[in-house]
Amino acid sequence: MSEMPANASKGHIEVRSFSLAYETIEGPVQAVADTQIHVKPGEFVSIVGPSGCGKSTLLNAVAGFLKPTTGMVTVDGERVSGPSAERGMVFQQYSLFPWKTVRENVEFGLKMRGMPRSQRERAARTLLGLAGLEAFEKHYPEKLSGGMKQRVGIVRALATGPKVLLLDEPFGALDAQTRVIMQQILTNMWQRLKISVLFVTHDIDEAIFLSDRVYCMTARPGSIKAEIPIPLERPRQQSMMMSSEFLALRRGLMSLIREESLKAMGGEINDMGMQGLNIELHGHSLADVI
């Protein structure tokens, strides 16, 4: 893509001795504890973990929406102190501006940067064309399907040429078919732009299929339980998901997550005082049920 500044060798994310606690009435809630992660320039890295383990918290800190309690987040050696157009973000909830058309949404970042109207219109059209959305440029987001909304969201985040792209379960609300297509589109864009991606998901197949590396987090307070390199060759194809290599990775990750999910759920069930009901909830029997 010629319009895009080449970001090769840029977009090095580093999160060091990071922890984050939310202040609440009942005192601080430790969401993430003692975490180190990094994303090399141009790398695609996913974070998986049980629900509530602090994945979004970590991602929001990288985006600059949350301040770490201890430790720090840097991008290319610069400390992250607030949100910026250098770090594009795609949210799980559709976050297109309902009062702007598809093209105006994509133009937004360029407008904020002060690019003249005709120029940013042309840039937005090109980008929409690459995502197969040029026919919808004048539509308002309300009329789009979920998959199209997220595609526009990704294009909008990429329009300003950020160094890194952060995605928080972007395909969580989509059906399986659409999800597969979106994964392909995201892979294509990532390969063309050579941008660093930090991707949060709870879908293990998705994480393996997309990533160069996967971090697996522990139950809350979240920290890194394991780091799994994904040596599958690229370009990857859907058929790979049946290969023994893929399935082996999947089994490994699955057991890691299951352990943590059980811990998380066991904790919650204890919190609710379920023992009083005299139900035997040993790890084993619960695991068998799930």
């Binding site: 910026s84 594009g88 973000m89 976050s95 501006f97 937004f108």
Partner: peptide
């Protein structure tokens, strides 16, 4: 979320 989206687009 819309405010956040605008912020990380440089607004």
């Amino acid at each position: 979320v819309l405010v956040r989206a605008a912020q990380c687009l440089g607004a």
